[in-house]
Amino acid sequence: MAMSSGVVHLCRLTGRSLGTVLGYSRGKPLTSRRWYITTSVTNNLQFKLEERTAHSSLDLFKKDTGVIYRILGVDPTLVQDTPLRFRDWAVVLADAHIDSGCHYWEVTVKKSDEFRVGVADVLTSRDECVGTNSTSWVFAYVQRKWFAMTSGKQVPVPLVGKPDRVGLLLDYEAGRLSLVDTQKVQVVHTIKTQFRSPVCPAFGLWDGELLTHSGMEIPEGL
């Protein structure tokens, strides 16, 4: 059954709920414009969130290192329309361009029951949600459970509860993205893949707020 125009408009305003739909691609090409920062080859990757990629329901704060979800957000017609922006999904990308090395960052999440953290190709489709295509790899928290996601496939992650802070460990050459328990300083789950193009940290948020912590050394023992 087709959705009414009002429902479609509401979905666009709210960035849709990741707990209800997985999304689709409309096959629109994405510009190859180089919007990212220079390549980082060291272990202490530092980044900010890129406002030009943020859905209109997301507000950046704390010098673009954090993001807050607004129920309806800004009317999409009032936000600068660029090929970099996610128009249907409450997603924002970081301004980092990673094509080598091992990197670690952490994320603090407050008052949120639905979010995704991981990486995506720099030029991943803006018409799909991160985790639903083959160019993004994320860990999703929804309905009090954790999942590893890519290409729309969900694999349960045995992480009990929702910690306030989690870590992400990326080994580009090895094709490994790991979710880290920051309290125990241990890997909880690893997504294995083969990165074929530059990637950047990616975040989806459907309520609450999220704060990123970059410029960190990889903890000993990981």
Score class of each variant (00 low, 15 high):
3 M>C: 00
7 V>H: 05
7 V>K: 10
8 V>H: 05
13 L>V: 00
20 T>E: 11
21 V>P: 00
21 V>T: 11
23 G>L: 09
24 Y>L: 03
24 Y>E: 06
33 R>H: 01
36 Y>G: 00
37 I>R: 10
43 N>F: 00
44 N>A: 11
46 Q>L: 06
55 H>F: 10
56 S>E: 12
62 K>P: 00
63 K>H: 14
65 T>P: 02
68 I>D: 01
68 I>M: 04
69 Y>S: 05
76 P>A: 11
79 V>K: 08
82 T>D: 00
84 L>N: 03
84 L>I: 05
85 R>P: 02
86 F>N: 07
88 D>R: 10
89 W>D: 01
90 A>W: 05
93 L>N: 13
93 L>S: 06
94 A>W: 06
96 A>M: 07
105 W>M: 03
105 W>K: 04
107 V>F: 01
107 V>W: 01
109 V>T: 13
113 D>W: 03
116 R>W: 03
118 G>I: 05
119 V>N: 01
124 T>R: 09
126 R>L: 05
129 C>L: 11
132 T>Y: 11
135 T>D: 02
141 Y>V: 13
142 V>Y: 02
142 V>H: 02
142 V>P: 00
142 V>G: 01
143 Q>I: 10
144 R>N: 10
145 K>R: 15
150 T>P: 09
156 P>Q: 13
157 V>P: 07
158 P>R: 15
159 L>W: 14
159 L>Y: 14
160 V>E: 12
160 V>N: 07
163 P>H: 12
165 R>N: 14
165 R>Y: 05
173 E>P: 04
173 E>Q: 13
173 E>T: 10
174 A>L: 14
175 G>E: 10
176 R>T: 14
178 S>Y: 08
179 L>I: 09
179 L>Q: 10
181 D>P: 05
183 Q>N: 15
186 Q>I: 09
189 H>N: 12
192 K>G: 04
192 K>D: 01
193 T>E: 10
195 F>K: 04
196 R>M: 02
199 V>A: 06
201 P>M: 06
202 A>D: 01
204 G>R: 08
205 L>K: 03
208 G>F: 02
212 T>F: 04
212 T>G: 08
213 H>Q: 13
214 S>N: 04
220 E>F: 02
222 L>D: 09
